[in-house]
Design a protein around this nucleic acid. Structure first.
Lengths: 198, 198
DNA sequence: CCACTTAACTACACTCGATGTACTAATGCA
DNA sequence: TGCATTAGTACATCGAGTGTAGTTAAGTGG
């Protein structure tokens, strides 16, 4: 995780981790809205400006893994297509992304906090929805490109949108219902199967 | 549209319309980001504070019809369920909402502007995604309630999420492709059919 | 016609997220 | 050793959004 690289990189990484840790702690302690970026920066012993050199917005401290997860999905699409039908490729990509949540996210304390905040803080929900949309758009484009003329780009978008929409809605409903993480995960897998007809 | 009501109501409505007109004009003329709420208010001859008495946020001037469209969907669910299977009810609700865009939205100049800004302004996209999510969550809950024990709430969420996800993704892809409004509408209808298996 | 209430709007102050810019200092590199 | 690069700082500024108290006019009951 902490690759060597140069000293500069490592220092930057430490600052980043300090910001994340401070943000997570403060969000948990006093709530998201009641925590200012200035506070987070101060707790991490940097200036407010530095926070925004690391994260485009306040909410993004909680979504540090989003990009990697999208790339995981893209990789699977690139690997499998076009040997298998699009729905199967998508099913595999989605399952990998769902499993990735468990593998990486639960280790950090971020997942639980984010699960809570996504239900209570509109700003967090909005950012999640936007990241999901961006990710699904990229995935749809990759899929359409992989299948060339055999898959209309708009149909690809509809297919991926349907899958993401189902999985996200099921996850949110399960979260709202308050079950344990496995229950949420099960709901996501079930929703994926439902969206891709199984 | 302009019901009589009292004079007070009518005045309030006029202020609202003035704000919308000013906002649409300014967004079109100089872009969304480059237009401040203060400018909009000034053009409508009210104070900035008044703007926020009418709209919760800057983006919401462009989504004045969202609530009515959700209620249209809810009404159709309430009327049809549970005589027909959920997917049919949903198909009817979605088709009604799609048609409603054409009926109401295109008349005002807002639809075209919003279609443009949703592609170029992240803030507008975020708000649209949030409104879609809120709407679909309400629809899913209504559906689950309508079918009682015959439809698991999480499955209902997945079903509605799948439909909304497909239709939205297709609409966005069609918009990005740049076709005329009918093309976008056709893409939405096709995506709905695809998500609900036809 | 006259009190009394209600509510839209104003005036003003303020918080906070986010960005631009010029500068400092330390790291990387030849 | 000298130069380029870059993380971080200091400072200024903008704009969205909110709290609050006050003003004015519309609604209401006698």
């Amino acid at each position: 995780m902490t690759e060597g690289q140069g000293l500069r990189e490592r220092k930057k990484g430490r600052t980043r981790q300090a910001l994340i840790a401070a943000a997570v702690r403060l969000f948990a302690e006093q709530g998201y809205e009641r925590t200012t970026v200035a506070e987070i920066a101060k707790a991490a012993d940097v200036t407010t400006r530095t926070f925004f050199l690391h994260f485009p917005a306040k909410e993004d401290v909680l979504f540090i893994d989003a990009e990697a997860r999208v790339e995981l999905g893209l990789r699977i699409v690139a690997e499998r297509a076009p040997g298998a039908p699009p729905t199967e490729v998508l099913a595999a990509a989605m399952q990998a992304m769902i499993d990735d949540v468990e593998a990486n996210d639960l280790a950090s304390g971020i997942a639980a906090l984010r699960a809570e905040l996504v239900l209570t803080e509109p700003a967090i929900l909005r950012r999640m929805l936007q990241l999901l949309y961006d990710g699904q758009a990229r995935l749809a484009e990759a899929l359409a490109r992989a299948y060339g003329g055999d898959l209309d780009p708009i149909d690809a978008a509809a297919l991926v949108g349907s899958l993401f929409g189902a999985v996200n809605a099921a996850a949110m409903a399960a979260l709202r219902a308050g079950g344990p993480p496995e229950r949420v995960r099960a709901a996501m897998t079930r929703a994926a199967a439902l969206a891709l007809r199984r």
